[in-house]
């Protein structure tokens, strides 16, 4: 249900472009208005969500630890596993953001003959996720060639490295293959395992299909049918200069690619994809384990009105005395 809903949603988006561009001819809408609206919506959406997060207090230190806390000088502390200062936190965050360290520890429970319960390491999700995110980053950066004139040397260097083996014409990018393979794995992973299929929602399938759609349209444009990329760069530069142009003769496939990218960026701040910003806001990762070394005061603590036992005794001294109850002060 969730699966077909998401697939249908992406197909409807594609049909929308076909009708809009090919039948009605709204090239200006799809080529200028929607992309510029997307840029604005993406930036404002990200700011809105990040500031909203930053307004929530994190009163207590709740880092997840799996190493020796900083203690006596002769006990070796694990600063990455249980960070006690800013460098430990930074090191931990860098490894988390760049290499998904906590996902590397992913385990799987299985019931073996006996019956025996076995916990084993499972790295496939980590590997698939790592390949997906890194190739997406390289592909994203490669696209700077459409937004910068002259093309920066480091973008060209990255592109040449990506096409290092010079296979095919146009040269096949390694990240294109890795990206498709990782996407296929991430989709199949949700479909093959019944437990995962049960917990997968439309919010999981939709971004996957959206990104698959973007990858497939992009690959079709580069390797199979051609589009006028000189015109495409003129159009992209037009958004940045705020001097929009819609060159004639850019293929519908490009508008499909562009519209799916726009949908992804509009959807981004309001969906699970925001883990891009969220990873920096994870209190179990970004806090130092200083529960004992420092005193952390809850920011929303108000001064509680207390009624101590001394005051209580003062108030009821006569009654208590009459009932012959023991008193601390006579």
């Amino acid at each position: 249900m969730h699966l077909f809903f998401s697939l249908a949603a992406v197909l409807v988006l594609l049909i929308l472009v076909f009708i809009g561009v090919d039948v009605v001819g709204w090239r200006y809408l799809f080529g200028v208005v929607i992309p510029i609206a997307t840029i604005i919506s993406f930036i404002l959406g990200m700011l809105y969500r990040v500031i909203k997060w930053a307004r929530s207090p994190v009163p207590f230190r709740i880092p997840t630890t799996c190493g020796q806390q900083k203690s006596l000088s002769w006990i070796k502390a694990g600063n990455l596993e249980s960070p006690h200062n800013i460098w430990g936190v930074l090191g931990r965050m860098v490894l988390e953001v760049l290499f998904f360290r906590s996902l590397f520890r992913n385990t799987k429970v299985s019931l073996k003959e006996g019956p025996r319960l076995v916990y084993g390491s499972t790295k496939w999700l980590w590997l698939g996720g790592l390949v997906f995110h890194w190739s997406f980053l390289v592909i994203f950066v490669r696209h700077f060639k459409f937004f910068a004139e002259p093309v920066p040397a480091w973008v060209m260097a990255l592109q040449n490295l990506d096409g290092f083996f010079q296979v095919g014409l146009p040269i096949i990018y390694l990240t294109d293959i890795a990206f498709l393979a990782a996407l296929t794995f991430l989709l199949l992973r949700r479909l093959v395992d019944p437990k995962l299929r049960y917990i997968s929602l439309a919010a999981d399938y939709f971004p996957l299909f959206l990104i698959i759609g973007i990858a497939v349209t992009g690959i079709l444009m580069r390797y199979f049918t051609k589009v006028d990329i000189v015109g495409i760069k003129e159009m992209a530069m037009g958004w940045l200069n705020l001097a929009p142009v819609v060159p004639a003769g850019i293929g519908t496939l490009f508008y499909m690619h562009l519209f799916l990218v726009c949908c992804l960026f509009i959807y981004f701040p309001f969906s699970k994809l925001l883990h891009m910003a969220g990873v920096f806001f994870s209190p179990t990762r970004n806090l130092a384990n200083t529960n004992r070394v420092k005193r952390h005061v809850n920011p929303w603590d108000y001064s509680v009105k207390v009624h101590t036992y001394e005051e209580y005794e003062d108030e009821f001294r006569d009654v208590m005395k009459a009932a012959e109850m023991p008193l601390e002060k006579e």
């Binding site: 910068a148 004139e149 002259p150 530069m237």
Partner: peptide, 9 residues
């Protein structure tokens, strides 16, 4: 970047 390079158009 484009503003700095001045070749945006």
């Amino acid at each position: 970047y484009n503003v700095a390079r001045g070749k945006a158009n």
